[in-house]
Structure formats: structure tokens, C-alpha cells
Design a protein around this nucleic acid. Structure first.
Lengths: 338, 338
DNA sequence: TTAGACTTAGGAATCGTTTCCAGTAATTAC
DNA sequence: GTAATTACTGGAAACGATTCCTAAGTCTAA
């Protein structure tokens, strides 16, 4: 149907001028007479011409496209980050190509290759892997700037949006302690991942401040995701030495833990103190007044967009720190237990 | 840094052959000798050459890119649809450009224009608007096939994934009636939108089957989204003629209604029967056993990908129907009330 | 040995832009 | 009135691939 695309040739022919002149008018170049401008603009309007983005990209060497790689857009936190970043990039004239890595390292590598082939102008990514030779290599070979989410980057030509997890977790832990909890369990992902490490730091600081020794048996650091947290929670509350409070790292972990607690008939805020790290949609409506540590995903999206645009504009890499705030609700109150 | 991109020229020079020969080898063309193949492949491997997707697209006239437009990727249902579609398209060699329309008609128009300029190979969209001259025009002018989500398309060169909302709602309503409810309120979006219309159809059928007259005062059809549902729910349960059961259409509406019910201290399944249309993540864990009408978002994503690929392969437009299933839980049980 | 058929490789056009380079026309200065 | 400057414009070369067309080379058959 609309097979016959209108090109700059058609416009030039209609206006009776050279192709280069049309281009000059359209790009707002200065050296163009009023008469020329009028002629071209009339032809453009009449034909309904719109420049082909593909050809422009090829010629200019810039695609105005940002690759956004994420483990799983289904994660409500990251879907907000993505949305907010997209909105911001859009305003700057960029489109966003979205790719899920499904937490798979091979997929991640492939995605970087795809980005490269597509000549993306920049990448915002929440990586599976931590800092490693592989990561450094890929980022260097990419030939485009990179912004990492929740990763410490050192000596790499990349910016990062990092959340100050420690701060919020520290506050939360302190509050649990103040409420009489000493035996606090912590269920989260691998310790060598930045986000876990950072959260644990806050946890340990608060414990140390209160002169409470951390019980290693209560530190369940293995995998992100629902299943691991489910199993660990079940296990934590089956033995003799049971915690009185529970902190769960991330949305998946919180879900798994809540599922387990439900089955164990332990009600957060009644039978056990509970703090979830990160919130999800309808958090306040749906959860029975769960306390949380909150970080603003929209802000994360905005910052990541800003950072990548800065890098594209050839500014030096930098970091944006997003604060986290403890939101006490009834689930972290004192618990009389064991 | 990696400024000097490796092109097909470099490969040709290194292998000592013509550019066209390199292209022929790489595209797996038949008429190429073994010796040539070996030479070229060696050069490709040595230089680490990867063809430029941009140049390929320009020449071939296909970008292997699908535009995915959605009101709001933050909506958990649609984020799953997007993820699933992306996964499927990826397997077929396509990438996905994601754009939010924020439910804004102007943004939607702009997005279509963007897709066109980017020479997208196809579009999957959840439109703001219903069938209208504007929609027909844009889709026809787009020059690329379109798959619409939850829209009836008639006489349009587009496929659609439509959910059989009526079926699930009918079952749910029948169950509410069986449980003794006669005064059933229905809070949802505008009646002229396909999804609402379809749901109401199921509702009215069940009511009609049970010979219960629909009380127009209980039909609160205005806007999608949290706020409207919140207000309407508050209003429904403030007057003298109060319903005993409530059905809410969509995740936003359910949230708003639940928030209102919470404030009104009406507990679903205890003080009022309640059915939510659509589920959201952790539905079973977080909600107090809410009944729901479920549709499989992953299936929606898969089907939309399949349909767009079919259209690109020049098959005739078609429709995929995704079933909905009523999932009774304790919130829809009988309520002794007023 | 030569004509004809068949492989295979190279050259050039093309996709739709931008941008550099000349060159013409208009303007100013002397 | 001529030279020097300036203001525009058109032509052509990129960008990096694919593909058509042609020609060279190989092989078979008479």
C-alpha cells in the first residue's frame, strides 16, 4: 500500500531545488534564504514529508537510541525505572530499546552484541554480573557509553546510579532493635553482589552500634528471588533458635518470605517483626501495614537518563546516589516471642 | 576509543576479494566457492567483523524492529505482556522499541509518527482510543502491520489479540448470585471501550440469566484508574441503597476500590463480596483471598508476537482470542448484609 | 579447437540522508 | 568599473551494507 515512501528527492523535485538545500532547510542551517525556506517548507507540507530516521542515523553515525537492559521488566520496581527513563529520554529525542536478560549471563552478552550491531548511542543496564574482566571488556568494546544500575564502577568508562541501601537498612534495623528485637534474620541475595553487600553493611552497622552480635545462622544470603526466600524462611522458623524479626532483601525475597509466613501462620507485626526492602505497587493497600525501606524508582530512571545523556554529550563519567528511606509501619513493632 | 569501526571494506581488503563477495558469503548465498568462503570467513574471524545493522536495514528496507506502545509499562499486567512479547520476538530476530503513551491521545499520535520515521517493521499497541477515523487513518498510513491489544478491529488491515472478558465475568457474576448476592455493583472504565463493554456484557448476561434487574445506580462506568474507583466505591457505600457485592474492572480500579474499602472498614469476603478483574503480582499472597477473573498475560504477549510476525510474513490479518477464567476464592462468598 | 552452458567474482548502482567543496550571484569597498 | 568579500546554492562524495548485471573462467560436447 503505502509502498512509495516520500523521500527528500521528491521534496527537492517538487520545490525545484537541490537535495542539499532541502536538507539544509530542514536541519535549520543558517545559510539559507527566506525564499528557499518558503519553497521547501511548502513542498514538505504538501507532500507530508518526514525524514527517514534510518538514513539519518547511518549518515550521522548516531541512532538516537538507548538500549535498556534489565533482568526482568516484570519486576515492578524496574518497570517504573524503565518507564521513567523512557519518558526522560523521549524528551531528549531518544528512543529506548528494551531487552530482558532473564538474569542469564549468556543472554546478557548476546544483548550487548546486539546493542553494538544496532549502533546504539548508549546503554542503561542492570547487570547480572558484578564487576569482572568480562564486564570491563564488553563495556570497553561496546564503543558507546554505559550507565549501570546499582553497581560500583571503578576505573571504568561508565557512570552509575547507585542507591544508598545501607542508610535505609541501618535505620530499619535500628528501629527493630529499639522495639526490642535482638534476633533479627536477614534473607537476601548473594553477598558478593553490590546491593546485598551494601544492605548488609547497614544491617551490621546498626547491630554493631547496639552491641548485638550478628548470629550467622540468621544471615541467609544465597539467591535473589522468591523460592530461596521461601525455603529459608520456612527453615528459620522451624528450628529451636528462631528469630523475632525478619528483613527481606528485594521484592522477590519479600514475596517468598510472606508466602512462607502465611503458611506458617505467622502474622507480620503480630507474631513476628518484619521489614521489606523495596516496595511494590499497592504496597500500602495490600500489605498488612508492612514496614519497608523505600527507594524512588522514578528518580532512578530520571537519573539514569540524565547520566547517559551526559556521557553522550562527552562529559566525564559520574555517579548519582539515590537515597533510601525507612518507612516504619506497624509490622516492625515490638514482638514478644520465645 | 573504538572509533574505527570494522566494515565490510576491511574484510574485503584483508581477504583480497570484492565487497560483494564478502556479502555473498555472509548471507549464505549459494554461488560461492569453498576457497572464497574460507578466505572470507578467516578474515571475518580475524577482524571480529559484525555487519552494521543500520546499513543492512537501509538497504534491505526492513529494520527487524517492532514498536510496542502501551499506556503504561508500570501496569503489572502489561509489563508481563511486554516481556513475553519481547522474548518471543527476540527469538525471531526482532528487537522491541518500547514507548509509553501515558494514556494520552496526542502522545499516541506522536508515537505512531515516530514508529513510521524509524521504519519499524510492525507495531503492537494497546491504544488509548477506540476504533475511529483517526485510528484507521494512522494505521493505514503507517505502512507497517499492526496488532492491537484488546480491540475489535473491523475492516482494518490489522490483527488483534482480544480477551474473552465476558466469559470470565459471567462466571464470576453467576457465582456471586449463587452465593446470595443480588445487589452487585460494577466499577470500571468508559462503556464505549471494548474491554468495558465486553465485561459488562458478561455481567448483564449472568444477571439476566438469574432474572435480576441491573440497578443502574450500581453501574459506575467512567474512567479507568485508581482515583475514579476510589471515589465511586466511597459513594456506593455511603448512601442508603448499598450493594452487597462489588466487581472492579482492571488493576487500577481494584486498587482504588480496595483502598476505599479499607478506609470504610469493609472487609472483602466478610462485609462485602468482592471480585477483582485481572490479577497482579503476588495476588495470592498479598490479597486476603480475593476472587478474580484471570487472563494470562504471557499468552497475550506470545499471541501478539505471533500475529505481528504473521502479518510481516504477509499473511492475512486475524484474531487471537485469549480466554479468561474465574478464580473463586473466599472473597466472593455469601454475605449477610443490609 | 571452438561454441555453448554453467560457475563464480567483481563493479557499480542503490537505500535516503548529511556535509564538504566549488562556484555563482550579490554586495560592498576602493 | 573592478576587485574582494559575502551569501547562497548545487553537485558529489560519503555512511555501510545488498544485489543486479556483466564478464571472466571452467567445463563439457561436438
Amino acid at each position: 500500500m503505502g509502498k512509495n515512501r516520500i523521500t527528500i528527492h521528491d521534496v527537492a523535485a517538487k520545490a525545484g531545488v537541490a537535495i542539499s538545500s532541502v536538507s539544509r532547510v530542514l536541519s535549520g542551517h543558517l545559510d539559507v534564504s527566506e525564499k528557499m525556506r518558503a519553497k521547501v517548507e511548502a513542498a514538505v507540507a504538501e507532500l507530508g514529508y518526514e525524514p527517514d530516521h534510518l538514513a539519518q542515523s547511518l549518515r550521522k553515525g548516531a541512532t538516537n537510541t538507548i538500549g535498556f537492559m534489565i533482568r526482568d521488566i516484570t519486576n515492578p520496581l524496574f518497570s517504573i525505572v524503565a518507564q521513567s527513563a523512557e519518558h526522560e529520554l523521549r524528551k531528549a529525542g531518544y528512543s529506548m530499546i528494551l531487552i530482558n536478560s532473564h538474569g542469564d549471563l549468556d543472554a546478557e552478552k548476546e544483548n550487548f552484541a546486539l546493542f553494538k550491531r544496532r549502533r546504539i548511542d548508549g546503554v542503561i543496564a542492570s547487570l547480572v554480573s558484578e564487576d569482572s574482566p568480562y564486564v570491563r571488556n564488553t563495556i570497553n568494546e561496546l564503543g558507546a557509553p554505559v550507565v549501570l544500575l546499582d553497581r560500583e564502577v571503578t576505573g571504568l568508562n561508565a557512570s552509575a546510579v547507585i542507591c544508598d541501601h545501607a542508610q535505609g537498612v541501618k535505620q530499619a534495623t535500628a528501629d527493630l532493635i529499639k522495639n526490642g528485637n535482638k534476633k533479627i534474620a536477614f534473607v537476601s541475595g548473594r553477598k558478593d553482589v553490590f546491593i546485598s553487600r551494601n544492605r548488609i553493611k547497614g544491617f551490621e552497622e546498626a547491630m554493631s552500634d547496639a552491641k548485638i552480635k550478628v548470629d550467622e545462622n540468621f544471615m541467609r544470603l544465597g539467591k535473589f528471588g522468591e523460592e530461596f526466600a521461601y525455603e529459608q524462611t520456612k527453615d528459620l522458623f522451624s528450628g529451636k533458635n528462631q528469630p523475632t524479626a525478619l528483613i527481606t532483601g528485594g521484592i522477590g525475597a519479600s514475596t517468598g518470605a510472606l508466602r512462607a509466613l502465611k503458611e506458617l501462620k505467622l502474622k507480620p507485626g503480630k507474631d513476628i517483626a518484619f521489614v521489606a526492602l523495596d516496595e511494590w505497587p499497592m504496597f500500602d493497600v495490600l500489605t498488612a501495614d508492612l514496614s519497608s525501606v523505600y527507594r524512588d524508582p522514578e528518580e532512578m530512571g530520571r537519573q539514569s537518563a540524565r547520566l547517559i545523556l551526559d556521557l553522550i554529550a562527552d562529559e566525564a563519567p559520574s555517579q548519582a546516589v539515590v537515597p533510601t528511606t525507612y518507612r516504619p509501619r506497624s509490622s516492625s513493632k515490638a514482638v514478644v516471642h520465645a
